[in-house]
């Protein structure tokens, strides 16, 4: 496995590095226990952009919530930099799939972006500058006075992204953020995500069920098995840093990577039964 980029070799303990170690999450229902995540271990170097793909129901959202500090893992730990994540850490922002529910409809776009900064006790002038800058970088400089529900879905998700980057996170977590927008908007938002990542240099962990999206966006693709989840594959995406919807997707290397990830995801669906049949242990 050649996970981290050459640019960030010794950054495992630097501020934006994420380390997930032996994370297991068991949901205790009434008389029913569900092991959603069995054993997840991986690291994402500071400033890396890693995509997580897996079959549906693979516990991707559970994993992301554990990383975000919104859920406590049953065992194992998540570390951000050299601190253990025990609640939502200050240097982390999450972009959810459900932008319509994540943005507050009772506030204008500007107020939505500003509110987390107020909670961070940032001064008024600096807040205004951060809000303007963030809205500008997602192409919504004219929208601060509008309400989120007056915007299209894609624009609403841009607002959510602006809110996240105005917060100046070291780590940006994105939970299937573009699953609910149309294909064209989706392509635009993918390019926006990559350009923001390259400009701001934060660590990005991007969860998706879309293999094309994972290969196109990521510097790395982690393939999860079906639930109970383990990391099955860790693939380095050696595509040029400058990506473009048409040309990048037309590269032979893109097709190879896509086929490889696709194969792994197919295998992921039957990973546990195959492993059991082969008499192998928990992880090959």
């Amino acid at each position: 496995m050649t996970g981290t980029k050459a640019a960030a070799p010794a950054t495992e303990y630097s501020a934006g590095a994420l380390a997930v170690r032996g994370v297991r999450k068991v949901y205790q229902g009434s008389g029913r226990t569900v092991e959603a995540v069995r054993d997840l271990t991986f690291t994402v170097g500071a400033g890396d952009l890693a995509c997580i793909v897996g079959p549906s129901g693979a516990g991707k959202t559970t994993l992301l919530k554990c990383v975000a500090g919104l859920l406590a893992p049953t065992s194992g730990e998540v570390r951000l930099g050299d601190a253990r994540v025990q609640g939502p850490p200050p240097g982390m922002a999450v972009v959810f799939q459900e932008y319509g529910r994540s943005l507050f409809p009772w506030m204008t776009v500007g107020a939505n972006v500003e509110l987390p900064l107020k909670q961070k006790k940032i001064g008024k002038a600096e807040r205004a500058a951060l809000v303007a800058q963030a809205l500008d970088s997602v192409g919504l400089q004219d929208a601060p006075a509008a309400y989120p529900w007056q915007l299209s879905g894609g624009m609403q998700q841009r607002v959510a992204i602006a809110r996240a980057i105005a917060y100046e996170p070291k780590v940006l977590l994105m939970d299937e953020p573009f699953a609910a927008v149309d294909a064209q908007t989706r392509a635009e938002l993918e390019d926006l995500t990559r350009s923001l990542w390259r400009k701001l240099g934060m660590t990005v962990l991007f969860v998706t069920h879309d293999i094309d999206e994972a290969v196109y966006l990521g510097e790395r693709v982690l393939v999860l098995s079906a639930s109970p989840t383990v990391v099955m594959e860790d693939i380095d995406v050696d595509l040029p840093a400058e990506r473009e919807q048409l040309t990048t997707r037309a590269l032979p290397r893109f097709a190879e990577l896509r086929a490889a990830v696709y194969g792994h995801v197919q295998r992921a669906k039957t990973f546990h039964s195959a492993a059991a049949a082969a008499g192998a242990g928990d992880r090959p």
């Binding site: 919104l70 982390m92 987390p116 909670q119």
Partner: peptide, 11 residues
Amino acid sequence: VARDTAVGYGF
């Protein structure tokens, strides 16, 4: 989701 958003941003 709104609650997670608020908690996530350290409200």
